[in-house]
Design a protein around this nucleic acid. Structure first.
Lengths: 356, 356
DNA sequence: CAGTCTATCTTTACCGGTACAGACTATAGC
DNA sequence: GCTATAGTCTGTACCGGTAAAGATAGACTG
């Protein structure tokens, strides 16, 4: 299959290659009559439109933006919250005709995707700031928007008020009178269950984890409460084992604050398995307001974030950065911190009235 | 920021441009000493490695493969099952250094991603076979693997036994003695709730829908049962309204077979809202064996598919196709239909023993 | 010591487009 | 009638690499 190129069409029609190029890319540069003739010949020859790579080389733009993922995609995408974020980004980008490339931050083999994948810009999503891949993005001079992580100096970050939300969650259970409170989270290694260990440094660099922990502690410290830390290894496995271990400790906690709704959901399942009533025996609070939160019985009290708004904000900021490279008169997009909202539902209130 | 190119490095070191290229791409083509010198100069000048677009143009490969999505990504990715499929594909591809580009099948504006995005191959995931985007992929001569959809003649398809699974689900509830059975699905338009309408043509072309419906009917027809069709508009909204309407009909069904676990989960929530016991008042069967199925109380009887195996199979088939283009002696990968398995749990059995 | 390798580097020729600066009309304005 | 102006089209010069074959020289073979 000999490839049909601009050149072959040009020869057939009897015009210059440039004119054929314009027929596709800049219709205003030639007469309609000629354009139609060119397009007809192109169709006849089976021309597929300008070659993406060649155009990309010539113009310096690729038509795709990358999303840098820290974790293995298997895990990240399995999480509905991350996936919805990605979906919102993709949809916000679609009208501009930009596709979205998933770029693994962790290199396997010699290919370094953050260096070798063609893209016009990138969104770094909840990455360890020390990842070499981030360096590559910057060295390439690509516009980058940082989501759920700190931006380097001058960078654009889109975050949510993780700390405030976690603090509100902690205050909520404290206000309900709970004193034995567990913090159900990740980042303490591979052992599921209650832990007295240190948060792993790499986990501490994940902003979402660090900030939610900080918020919880702010809320608990004020009441002089020392929490029970419970670890869930950061894999895709069901968190029920860790939850079971938590519920088996002497002086079992009466309330548990969870890093995410997905973890909270497993906690609720474990509570049911153990014959414990929620919220009567155990109050549970999640984070994210995942669809799970509404599907669970009782409905889950949680800190709502608008993950789709976050995705849209990130996409818009990145679009502005990409456009700003071409037109320096445009103002740079600003970092934003989106608000969160504590949603009190049946998993803590117990009152049917609040459970709608 | 003047770009550092191979040429500038070559001049600085005093060798040909080709040698510099080889220093990066084919280390065996030059002496180690020279290579080190070149890399040193490259580092000093801030060279970032070969430009992806230029390399892509010269070699004819892009280092990315596309995944064609029919629905808006916002919806597709929000579904944990789709998302896990995508994650499995991405992880299977990662060792080959291939990135993954999400390609919207529905064009917005003049850009046709399936035509304009650079890629080495594509996975079409549960698309309407009549989508123009599929044509573009074929006209480009790209290797394509079709997942959860029929492949065109000679194409490679990875599917699951949707029909057999649905049939097993139907037989299961029939065997339990149910006679008033609802089929909770999508594809009948925008009205939620029981319907007597026709399945929309575009929905009928979605293999997953068509096959699961066919399987259900095979199972019910054998028992002479006429089901109640219940429609859930194909949006991201919670399906509880449709479920509520279903439970409000006179002669309320005693069993409901659902297109997916996500829908089943909403049905169970609606049952709880209506004060109905599962499985006592209403038996519920899902499809997919989504993590939800295990988290729900009672646990959801469902048809298990291994979505990650599906993703891996698709990725492997595509890798084989891509490799086969270069080396025609390789055998073409074959279409596969992966098995499914009915998982009987508490939402139909009622027996505690089966609910573990 | 001629002949043949092998390793190393260079030369030539693309890959398939687009940007930008003319050049050549035809029309309009005065 | 002569010059602006706009509308079309062409020519040239890149974009930044890689493939494949050729050149050169020292090592090895018999």
């Amino acid at each position: 299959m000999a490839r049909v190129t601009l050149q072959s069409i040009a020869e057939r029609v009897g015009v210059s290659r440039m004119t054929v190029s314009n027929a596709f890319s800049r219709p205003d540069q030639l007469s309609d009559a000629l354009r139609e003739r060119i397009l007809a010949v192109a169709a006849e020859l089976g021309y597929l439109g300008p070659d993406p790579s060649a155009r990309s080389l010539a113009t310096g733009t690729t038509g795709t933006i990358g999303v840098l993922w820290a974790k293995e995609l298997r895990y990240s995408l399995a999480d509905e919250v991350s996936a919805r974020f990605l979906g919102a980004v993709a949809d916000e980008l679609a009208p501009s005709g930009l596709a979205l490339t998933l770029v693994p931050a962790i290199a396997e083999g010699s290919v370094v995707p953050a260096r070798d994948v063609a893209m016009d810009g990138a969104i770094a999503f909840s990455c360890d700031p020390e990842l070499p891949a981030l360096d590559w993005l910057q060295r390439r001079g690509l516009p980058v928007v940082y989501v759920d992580m700190a931006a380097p100096r001058g960078g654009v970050a889109i975050t949510i008020d993780d700390r405030g939300g976690a603090r509100a969650a902690a205050r909520h259970v404290v206000a309900l009178g709970h004193r034995r409170i567990a913090l159900f989270t990740s980042g303490f290694g591979d052992e599921p269950g209650p832990t007295t260990g240190q948060l792993l440094p790499e986990a501490g660099r994940i902003r979402v984890i660090a900030e939610r922990h900080a918020g919880w502690l702010e809320g608990l410290d004020a009441a002089g409460i020392v929490p029970l830390w419970v670890n869930q290894p950061n894999t895709y496995a069901d968190a029920r084992e860790a939850a079971r271990a938590m519920l088996a400790v002497p002086d079992r906690p009466t309330a548990v604050l969870c890093l995410t709704d997905v973890l909270a959901s497993s906690v609720m399942a474990a509570a049911a398995d153990a014959g414990l009533g929620v919220p009567g025996d155990l109050a549970v609070v999640g984070f994210d307001d995942h669809p799970l939160a509404l599907r669970s019985r009782p409905r889950l009290t949680t800190v709502r974030q608008d993950v789709e708004a976050k995705g849209r904000a990130a996409a818009q900021a990145l679009l502005a950065l990409v456009a700003g490279r071409a037109d320096v008169t445009l103002s740079r997009p600003r970092s934003r911190r989106l608000p969160v909202q504590l949603e009190v539902r049946g998993s803590t209130s117990g009152g049917v009235q609040l459970d709608r």
